[in-house]
Amino acid sequence: MDILIQQLFNGLTIGSVYSLVALGLTLVYGILHIPNFAHGALYMLGGYITLSMMTLYGVNYWFAMFVSVIVVGLMGVLLERFVFRLLREAPPLHDKIAAIGILLFLEAFAQFVWGADFHTMTSPYDQVVNIMGLTFTMQRLLIIVSAIVVMILLYLFLKKTYTGSTIIAMSQSREGASLVGININKVAMLTFMISGGLAAIASSLASPINLVFPGMGHLVILKAFVIIILGGMGSIPGAIVGGYILGFSESLGATYISNDYKDIIAFVLLVVILTVKPTGLFAKGER
């Protein structure tokens, strides 16, 4: 029983990270209509920037994360403005090629600046807390709480503010958005900024329990793809629920099946769910 609860808690932790990454991916999908392969590289950059801020400038964890969110968010804006906007009229394949190009470039860039080594990020929250005989590390609790707070704020922004709802509107009909007087260039930049920011938050939260290295985004982004396919491309609830489903399946699978195979679970889940519901869990209607 204790093991089960412990594993559910772990599932909640990694699920939180997956959900944040998948949310950013799904938001940008609404703009580009292709998955942004470069998203994993933004995640990786977020980790490095937070780490560098802490080690080089000695700033505290939260401020480092804040800088990281700003920098990676701006990075997203630049990608929109100088890459994807120019490809708007081009066939979707060009977007995909560009995204892969950006991914390769950013990884090489990270390796050039920070080297290929693995780094650890020490968080100030490495204490262990005891709750009813179960032990949790503070950092893991922090991941869960922060992720949920971020998701609630994002939800309120998208649902309750005019600016936020332009993102939803544009994902449902770009021309419709234009027709009601929305500046779609601004919305696209805003979406990339939020997406980059979410990636930076996710990696800054996850790095203290993982490692920082140039390829740190690979597995995460692959799984985020699985999640948004599971949840239905472009669906926001789908990204959140999908993230947690994957988190729970992985942590339970690691305990009860085999730790060696935990990274395969995502793909098994993908096959199973798409067999039962080919459009994904939260598929949107026709566009």
Partner: peptide, 23 residues
Amino acid sequence: APDKNVQAGIVQCAEGRKLFPQM
């Protein structure tokens, strides 16, 4: 730009309606 025109009062109800279907 289209958004400037809407601000100026030029508004189009386009072919195919272009609604936001899931809103």
